[in-house]
Amino acid sequence: MEVILREDVEKVGAGGEVVDVADGYARNFLFPRGLAEKATKAKIQEVKAAQKAKEKAKAENREAAQAQAEKLESEKFEIAVKAGEEGRLFGSVSTHDIADKVEAAGYEIDRKKIDLDENIKDLGAHKVTVKLFEDIAAEITVNVVAKEEE
């Protein structure tokens, strides 16, 4: 029996897929739990149209992420913080600080997508990776400088 999965089902398929399963499995497991619905020609056409729209949106997002990555890599971001002697910071520069600085420059990024093993604790230039899309990442330069005392 052909069914359209509403959700991911382990060892069967992903949500939105049209799969062929045993009649009893569909009637006794998938349908009662709301995991699938019977595949009709009209519903299969709907699923195909939705998949095309999803693929088109994904392609557009990929292009936008690629363009944003190129722009981000060409810029340098400077963060001024209080520092002691020998270039050690009082505190540290976190992903939150980096995200704020990048957003202030006009880019929209999620701080959870900034790949920073541990907070920056030294002055100087640091390379930081920002994941923008599934396989697209930008390596930005964050220059940490000492804040001038007033």
Score class of each variant (00 low, 15 high):
V19W: 08
G87F: 08
K82F: 12
E63A: 04
D20L: 12
N61Y: 02
K76P: 03
A80D: 11
R33G: 06
A65N: 04
E75M: 12
K56F: 06
R27C: 06
K82V: 08
K43A: 06
A26G: 15
E73N: 12
Y25P: 01
E55V: 02
D23Q: 15
E75W: 13
K56V: 00
I109C: 08
Q51Y: 00
T40Y: 08
V21E: 04
E55Q: 09
F31R: 01
A22W: 05
D23N: 15
Y107Q: 04
D20Q: 09
D110F: 09
K76Q: 13
Y107S: 06
K38L: 10
R27G: 04
E60A: 01
E37F: 05
G106T: 01
G91E: 09
F77K: 08
E60G: 04
Y25V: 00
D100T: 08
R62I: 02
A65G: 05
V81I: 11
A104C: 07
E63C: 04
Y25I: 02
E70M: 14
L72D: 05
K56S: 03
I109Y: 06
L72Q: 09
Y25E: 05
K52R: 15
K54Q: 15
D23L: 15
K38S: 12
Q51M: 03
V19E: 06
I109D: 05
A105S: 15
S94C: 05
R33M: 09
A69W: 11
H96N: 02
F31E: 00
G24P: 01
R111I: 07
A36V: 02
E63R: 02
G106R: 09
E70L: 14
A59D: 01
A80Q: 12
G34P: 10
G91N: 12
S94K: 07
A50H: 12
K54T: 07
D20R: 14
L30D: 00
A26W: 03
Q68L: 07
Q66C: 03
E103I: 11
A99M: 05
E63D: 04
V93C: 11
A50Q: 15
A99R: 04
A42E: 15
K76H: 11
L35P: 03
Y25R: 11
A64V: 08
T95I: 12
Q68M: 11
A26Q: 12
R88E: 12
E103P: 05
Y25A: 09
E103N: 15
E108F: 07
E63M: 01
A49S: 13
N61Q: 14
G91H: 10
S92R: 11
F90L: 10
A57I: 03
A50D: 13
R88M: 12
V93R: 14
D100E: 10
E108V: 11
G87H: 09
E86R: 15
G34H: 14
R62W: 02
E85R: 06
A57G: 02
Q51S: 07
A99D: 04
